[in-house]
Design a protein around this nucleic acid. Structure first.
Length: 682
RNA sequence: UGGGAUGUCGUCUAAUGGCAGGACACGAGAUUUUGGAUCUCGUUAUGGUGGUUCGAAUCCACCCGUCCCAGCCA
């Protein structure tokens, strides 16, 4: 039970409202809905449903300069797609403009509002500050008759934009800035998306919002925390006019790691074409997530799990990803797709022949059916699934090693084919064991690895886009660094692959269809860029990847950097891409303290200033380079600042410093010159 | 430094004077024709200092931290 429902229960018990629970979702149609709105939508509609009440959809459209019909359309579509229904209760604040005007007139009649001639600048000057009271406007004392006349003429268009405003007469000395005679009507000659040219004055949000809720007889006006300070103003309007008074309850808006949620920033990404549009699959917008392959169920479930409270909080993107995996794992039919193909010739398989394997669509739910997958002498496997010199725990294919091709046969690698000049691996030669047909050995022998594959001849080529988190840092909007959030865009957030090989059954997949590409992740058919018979796939989410964790030093974050390397590799040794490299956040660190670590002959404990408000504790295996550890004091070193913290026997290590060499000839990379702690190293 | 709000595992969130619980993340194991899924087990928290009380996350006092507010935006 959350605190909102607790309050509602109390209201129900005390009989505060005579009718049932009635909520509303009141977006401004000046942008697309995002996952933060989804939280509010779920809250409002679910509460209404839980109490057998109603939830309205209302467009808060009081600023014609910013609002557009396009946004209204998208908002309705998104709310509906999430699975909610407002029946015939689709409202617009602009529908109430006539009544709001009358309310304003009534306020004047009651001596509670006045027409003010101050300019915006004058008004700002006289508003006072957080600690000083404001000064009353010289126009505050106009007579009711004069105010009535002036306001009517404002409406009639007798004054220029901004020349006059209607203000509430409250208290210029109030410690709550919202109560210092706020503007309630402004003159604005702009056509409105619904009322057209009818009005040249428009009511302000605060005035409109509380009265709209009152008009709709909303019982519980649920909104976000920043409006807590506005509640006294709403109370003032409602009491001054003696009208129906809803109860407002504020909750903390949703923040998510590795993305931004403000409309301003989202709009900036769209305008600067840093993303392809509001529905770019990397965007946290509902339309973007829909295109990415998120299901409404997974989003609703996410909104349930995060709960609702008044603490400022930032939810781990991992939870959202968990929710979509959980849902898709149940629903997605399995398919095989090779994203970065490596050709394999099965030398003892008869040439010119082929066979089909019946492979289930879902290993855990046979009822979901199966499909036939053709197999032949030449197949493709994933380039990552082969290593010539495999490290320990690499369970996949390597020279002389036997693995299973999923649902087909055991194969053993007999030869590696390389480009003579570059040394690049261009193919493999394998043998297969006919006795393992279907993927099981009669003699009971086991293999460690199972690979996905497609037949070279029967598969088809397709484009697949691998999407990843939009930003490289958990809080890109956090301004403490002074850097623009776009600097933290993840260059690897979109990797477009053109030459993937997919099993034939995927050929006619339709827009929005979802699949699990085995061992890769969940993918959906892009609804915009696909054409009949040539689907384009978007990766919704990767599978959990415990191999990436083992192989990459225990860092979950790095699993997100696992972009396939389709570019040819020049010589020996695995290559990382530029994208991978730019994910490493290197910073200048000033060593402030150095101490020996008891129980370790290799480690030094460093306290390093990386330009943050605290020092970082870093354990570095550089003892051999410093007989006198104090030599490191005051040195500027290179710190990997976005390395996941590691809990060691001696304590938590919050980063890593760069060093080269081994043993006594090891040296720590140090910097001379001007760089300041925290500076980024590029 | 005015006003409003808020501090509980790494992250969300419960517990309203009576065993600090759940989810994600993390770790270990079992199982597995996806290094997926599933199952079992485990580590980790009440911002601080006083006080009231048999008993405090909860009540009181003081302190500290964080967020929001000075649009004719919403």
């Amino acid at each position: 039970m959350d605190f909102i429902r607790t309050i509602i229960n109390e209201d129900l018990k005390s009989g505060r409202f005579d009718a049932g629970v009635h909520t509303r979702f009141p977006p401004e149609p000046n942008g697309y809905l995002h996952i933060g709105h989804a939280k509010s939508i779920c809250l409002n509609f679910n509460i209404a449903a839980d109490y057998n009440g109603l939830c309205n959809l209302r467009m808060d459209d009081t600023n014609p300069v910013k609002e557009e019909a396009e946004y209204v359309e998208s908002i309705m579509q998104d709310v509906r797609w999430l699975g909610f229904d407002w029946d015939d209760r689709m409202y617009y604040a602009s529908d109430y403009f006539d009544r709001l005007y009358e309310y304003a007139v009534e306020l004047i009649r009651r001596g509670r509002a006045y027409v003010c001639d101050q300019s915006a600048e004058e008004m700002r000057q006289s508003r006072g500050t957080l600690t000083e009271p404001g000064r009353e406007s010289p126009w505050r004392g106009r007579s009711i008759e004069e105010n009535l006349d002036l306001f009517a003429r404002m409406r009639a268009g007798e004054f220029a934009d901004g020349e006059k405003t209607l203000r509430a007469r409250i208290d210029m000395a109030s410690p709550n800035l919202n109560l210092r005679d706020p503007v309630i009507y402004r003159i604005l000659r702009a056509p409105h998306h619904r009322t057209g040219e009818k009005w040249c004055i428009y009511p302000m949000y605060d005035f409109t919002h509380c009265l709209s809720d009152s008009i709709e007889r909303i019982t519980h006006s649920i909104c976000t925390l920043e409006f807590e300070d506005h509640r006294p103003l709403y109370d003032w309007f409602l009491e001054a006019l003696e009208v129906y008074h809803p109860r407002q309850i504020e909750f903390a808006r949703l923040n998510l790691t590795y993305t931004v949620m403000s409309k301003r920033m989202l709009l900036q990404l769209v305008r600067q074409r840093l993303v392809s549009g509001w529905d770019d699959p990397r965007m946290p917008t509902i339309s973007g997530m829909r295109r990415r392959g998120y299901t409404p169920e997974s989003i609703r479930n996410f909104c349930e799990r995060i709960g609702v409270a008044k603490n400022d909080s930032t939810v781990d993107m991992g939870l959202l990803e968990f929710c979509v995996r959980e849902d898709l794992n149940r629903k997605a039919t399995r398919r095989m797709a090779v994203l970065d193909p490596l050709k394999v010739i099965i030398e003892n398989y008869p040439e010119g022949t082929a066979e089909e394997f019946e492979i289930p669509d879902h290993p855990d739910h046979p009822a979901m059916g199966s499909r036939k997958v053709p197999f032949s002498r030449t197949v493709y496997i994933e380039r990552d699934d082969f290593m010539e010199n495999p490290p320990a725990k690499f369970f996949r294919l390597a020279p002389g090693r036997e693995v299973r091709l999923r649902g087909a046969y055991f194969v053993t690698c007999t030869r590696v084919v390389k480009d003579e000049k570059t040394g690049e691996i261009t193919g493999l030669v394998c043998t297969y064991d006919p006795a393992t047909r279907g993927g099981d050995a009669q003699d009971g022998r086991k293999v460690k690895g199972t690979l996905h594959w497609v037949s070279a001849e029967h598969s088809f080529e397709a484009s697949v886009r691998l999407y990843d988190r939009l930003f490289t840092v958990p809080d890109p909007a956090g301004s403490d660094s002074g850097r623009d959030f776009t600097e933290f865009l993840n260059p690897g957030s979109l990797v477009a692959l053109e030459a993937c090989r997919l099993e034939p059954s995927l050929k006619n997949a339709g827009p929005g269809e979802i699949f699990q590409f085995e061992r890769q992740g969940y993918f959906c058919v892009d609804a915009k860029d696909s054409t009949e018979g040539s689907p384009v796939f978007n990766r919704t989410a990767t599978l959990r990847d415990s191999w990436a964790k083992i192989g990459k030093g225990g860092s979950t974050e790095k699993a997100h950097a696992a972009a396939p390397k389709q570019a040819p590799k020049k010589d020996s040794g695995p290559r990382i891409t530029l994208d991978d490299f730019t994910r490493v956040d290197l910073r200048v660190g000033l060593v402030r303290e150095v101490s020996l670590v008891e129980g370790s002959s290799k480690l030094l404990k460093l306290m390093v200033d990386v330009g943050e408000d605290r020092l970082r504790q870093i354990f570095a295996g550089v003892r051999s380079a410093y007989q006198e550890p104090d030599d490191l004091l005051g040195k500027k070193v290179v710190v990997v600042a976005n390395l996941k913290e590691r809990d060691m026997r001696f304590g938590r290590s919050e980063g890593m410093i760069l060093a080269a060499g081994e043993g006594s000839r090891m040296g720590v990379v140090t910097l001379d010159g001007d760089p300041e702690p925290g500076d980024r190293i590029s």
